[in-house]
């Protein structure tokens, strides 16, 4: 645990959020917000797909920085490898229109609504526990998080708590999730009027 991270982890709860953002977090935040913004604003769909690929790069680095390697790996595998390819294939089967303008014109009422929603969400930021705080309920709850962390190896004999939660403690949810993935494949077949994949 290095100094910069310890500063984030042990920051006082009442301190402003901005003061706890380190340099790498700040630059990754800026990167992610910019890519998300330009994905929405790009007029050409292909450019939007490419910039969305860049968005996933920033998100994976951010997840990794917050010590969520499983989520980061999912983001890497799905977003960089699969989503971009599937979106490109969809684009190849549709018509592309060459636009003169590089960016979409902003719909002002929609932008105002989004701004209001953003302001409302920012009002709740003061009550959210600091990143990595030991007093956050998601960490300090002795019946859920702490129990999983303490009991994972004794109960399941695997080291990765995330996998233990996914496959054992919440196995039934994961079964539903897997069936949803399977149903997505069938739904694509139905929508495209096909009986076979290949």
């Amino acid at each position: 645990m290095t100094g910069a991270i310890a500063g984030v982890a042990s920051g006082p709860l009442g301190a402003p959020v901005v003061a706890q953002v380190t340099a790498i977090e700040a630059s990754l935040f800026v990167f992610v917000v910019l890519t998300a913004l330009f994905t929405a604003l790009a007029r050409d769909v292909l450019a939007a797909v490419i910039i969305f690929g860049a968005y996933s790069l920033g998100m994976a680095a951010l997840y990794t920085f917050y010590r969520a390697p499983d989520v980061a790996m999912t983001e890497a595998a799905i977003s960089a490898g699969v989503t971009t390819v599937l979106l490109l294939l969809t684009l190849a089967k549709t018509t592309r229109i060459d636009h003169e303008a590089a960016f979409e014109s902003v719909n002002l009422p929609a932008a105002g609504a989004v701004g209001l929603l953003f302001a409302g969400l920012m009002l709740t930021m003061a009550d959210i526990p600091a990143v990595g705080s030991r007093d956050a309920p998601i960490w300090s709850n002795p019946d859920v998080s702490q129990w999983y962390i303490a009991q994972t190896y004794a109960e399941t004999h695997v080291e990765n708590t995330v996998m233990a939660v996914l496959a054992a403690f919440r196995g039934f949810d994961t079964f539903g999730e897997a069936v949803v993935v399977f149903a997505a494949g069938i739904a694509a077949l139905i929508v495209l009027h096909r009986e076979v994949f290949a």
């Binding site: 340099a23 630059s27 330009f38 910039i51």
Partner: peptide
């Protein structure tokens, strides 16, 4: 480790610069 984190932050700043080419 602190210096490595600073280096990583530098690379993240460079990523914002590269984004210019991806957008424009």
């Amino acid at each position: 480790g602190d210096f490595l984190l600073v280096a990583a932050a530098g690379f993240a700043v460079l990523a914002v610069g590269m984004l210019y080419r991806a957008v424009v």
